[in-house]
Design a protein around this nucleic acid. Structure first.
Lengths: 231, 231
DNA sequence: CTCCGCAATTGACATAGAGCAAATCGTCAC
DNA sequence: GTGACGATTTGCTCTATGTCAATTGCGGAG
């Protein structure tokens, strides 16, 4: 399983990195593959490596003391994940679970400073990444504080269709297997409620459901729902 | 209103910075004072400066399209705030509103790289700060997804008492004026519910309320409430 | 092709907590 | 001291969702 420059070059983070630097990074990386349902690392484990997702799709989850699970975020190809250590943590705050077979590159956490030094552009990217992630978190908090479930689900589905949408015959297909339970854990509700909402949308022609499948047929319509300033 | 080294030295961020560097930073800084209720900057305004809170207390708020407000975080003395620009944003994502008269130092955003270069320790601090903030956000998301209102309020009050607690005769006093509305906006509920909860707690002897006042009498008891794995 | 198990759907019911309304109370300005 | 206003409290109602339960059905394993 050989990974070369051209693969990384596709990700905006590495777009402008000189070949030499890129090769140096790759030389130190260890590729890791995981089947669907496997974990790259588990919540609480010592943070020994950080990763770059090449392809596939992950969810980062946290479980509460009393066993409830939430999805912290979904990791898409080109995203870094598991760089907790860079933020001074010694263990992973969540579990990185694959939703489909996935391929990632890994570096030992000690390599992080070097990773950053390699290119100023990369340092900026990394900071931006975190900043963006913080913003996403705040968006989610805002939505959970002020919006009712249906709007939250609408926002979440729209986001997914942007980040992982694949044009299909009659709409945009979410390009990885996702359950109602997943959506529930992303929006802070239950799979029952999600199911009801999706059913309602389906009968309105907004989406098309299926087992671990989701196709958005009417993005505009969903947008309208998501934006609705409360009836 | 002269700010000198000894003031900054109290904050962990500057503990180990050489006098010279510290003075250089101070030389470029402009102190800014704000009365209670004033804003250092407003949501959406161009991010021209970033700040360090010297004393006082702020809340960073966001308003949604339909006018609902949430408190993104509370800023305590020693915290940096408004460094959105460092994360590539051009405008402030929220409004920084003082809860009491406050004093801050400000630097033009252009000075950020220099600020960072000034000391490697400081760069690390900054990264940690953001990382911590991200973690806080995730904690909040987790709480909002999985906990009922009473536990969320308990967690929030405990956090406040840790970050802004002042030992008092019979408990820990939150050291700045805070309304039920504020607490509601921090936990994603309404002031009514918060009021009811606090009243209930008061009759159990856990806290002592008052107009814009809050005194935690029984930290242990509150902890128990916050930890309770659902009734 | 058939079976099995996990996902999804749907109905019935219970309730936490939002909304609304009205009364009271603490503080600050004068 | 007196007003006046914002903060707080509290009762009542209503509804969005969670909870519980049962059924259906898709899709992979053999």
């Amino acid at each position: 399983m050989k990974i070369d420059r051209t693969v990384l070059r596709r990700f905006s983070m590495f777009e402008r990195m000189p070949d030499g630097d890129l090769d140096a990074l790759i030389a130190q990386a260890v590729p890791k593959r995981a089947d669907a349902g496997e974990a790259f690392f588990e919540q609480g484990a010592p943070a020994t490596h950080f990763y770059l997702l090449i392809n596939g799709r992950l969810k980062v989850t946290q479980v509460t003391q009393d066993g409830q699970q939430i999805i912290v975020r979904v990791v898409h190809p080109g995203d870094l994940f598991g760089f907790a250590r860079a933020l001074r943590r010694n263990d992973y705050p969540g579990t990185a679970l694959t939703m489909t077979e996935s391929l990632a590159m890994s570096w030992p956490t000690e390599a992080w400073p070097q990773f950053i030094d390699r290119s100023p552009h990369l340092a900026v990217s990394a900071l931006n990444t975190i900043g963006q992630r913080l913003e996403e978190a705040h968006t989610r908090i805002r939505e959970m504080s002020t919006e009712e479930v249906e709007r939250r689900v609408a926002h979440t589905v729209l986001r997914l269709s942007q980040q992982a949408g694949k044009p299909a015959e009659n709409g945009v297909r979410i390009d990885f297997p996702i359950t109602r339970q997943d959506i529930a854990e992303m929006t802070g509700t239950t799979l029952h409620t999600v199911s009801r909402i999706l059913s309602a949308w389906e009968s309105k022609g907004l989406v098309e459901g299926g087992r671990q499948k989701l196709l958005v047929r009417d993005v505009k319509g969903l947008q309208a729902l998501a934006d609705a300033s409360n009836r």
